[in-house]
């Protein structure tokens, strides 16, 4: 049998592709070791159709009220404490009314109101732009409304940061570990090059615990099922005048703010 160079290359090329294809096919078909019947949700998990927060700003009076909540969240989630606002990482933090609700401030508003601090975090939007743009489904919306991050899958393209109109997302511009003073051994850290944000304490809900910020807020932050008319959050929303951030964009934030009024029955 004789063949010229061109034929030889063709045959080797095709057989290589077939070989690789066959191996890939067999690997793809191989069953995963964990069967669907082998996994189940934890029995103690708190469940909802759509989780949401109501933040009563009248309960946040002192600096300590803010730092306590922030510390509770950041310490259990191993959020690094980076002292550079350009590359810092934050899951929950405070900002003034003027900057939290841009366009809602008015010229003659009292300075105290403009500068009044608000607790800011991921809004867990019902219609999240970050989820829409993510090219790998690394950020996705769970059936209970939580906008989750799968840090294993994130490729660090930062499309979600451009898409989020709330500045809720932080990127690990370097290894976060040197900036975590006392790591919580029960929770992972993140690695360089991934985006992170508040995850509504999904790991605590699974154990039947409240989100950490709720517990630390001493009643300032209430969480519950927005789709359950009898829930505490719904009761608060129907009883008080509440505002949400940038409603005009249609993302439907799940975080409601009660601004003033000292009564919170």
């Amino acid at each position: 049998m004789s063949m010229d160079r061109r034929q030889f290359l063709k045959i080797t090329g095709v057989s290589t592709i077939l070989g690789i294809g066959a191996v890939a096919g067999v690997n793809g078909l191989s069953r995963s070791p964990v069967e669907a019947s082998q996994v189940e949700p934890s029995p103690d998990a708190l469940k909802a159709k759509r989780w949401g927060f109501v933040i009563d700003m009248s309960k946040f009076r002192t600096d300590d009220d803010f730092t306590r909540v922030r510390h509770a969240c950041h310490s259990i989630h191993n959020v690094p404490d980076i002292d550079n606002p350009k590359v810092e990482i934050k899951w929950i933090w405070k900002d003034t009314y003027e900057h939290t609700f841009p366009g809602q401030e008015s010229k003659y508003m009292a300075e105290e109101m403009k500068d009044k601090p608000f607790m800011v975090l991921c809004n867990h939007c019902d219609n999240p732009p970050c989820v829409r743009v993510c090219p790998t489904k690394a950020t996705f919306k769970r059936s209970d409304g939580i906008v989750m991050m799968d840090m294993h899958r994130c490729i660090g393209c930062r499309f979600c940061m451009a898409a989020c109109p709330f500045g809720a997302r932080s990127f690990n511009f370097g290894d976060p570990r040197p900036f975590i003073k006392e790591p919580n051994p029960e929770f992972p850290t993140r690695t360089k090059g991934v985006v992170e944000k508040c995850t509504f304490c999904y790991e605590r809900l699974a154990k039947g615990l409240n989100p950490a910020c709720v517990d630390a807020s001493q009643g300032g932050i209430v969480f519950g099922d927005l789709e359950d008319p009898k829930s505490e959050v719904r009761r608060l929303i129907s009883k008080h005048y509440t505002i949400r951030r940038k409603l005009e964009l249609g993302t439907e934030p799940s975080v409601y703010y009660i601004i003033g009024g000292n009564e919170n029955a």
Partner: peptide, 14 residues
């Protein structure tokens, strides 16, 4: 396990 916990919210393995 990872996908089950992070993506599906199922944490118990039999």
């Amino acid at each position: 396990w990872r996908d089950s916990v992070v993506r599906d919210g199922n944490r118990v393995y039999v």
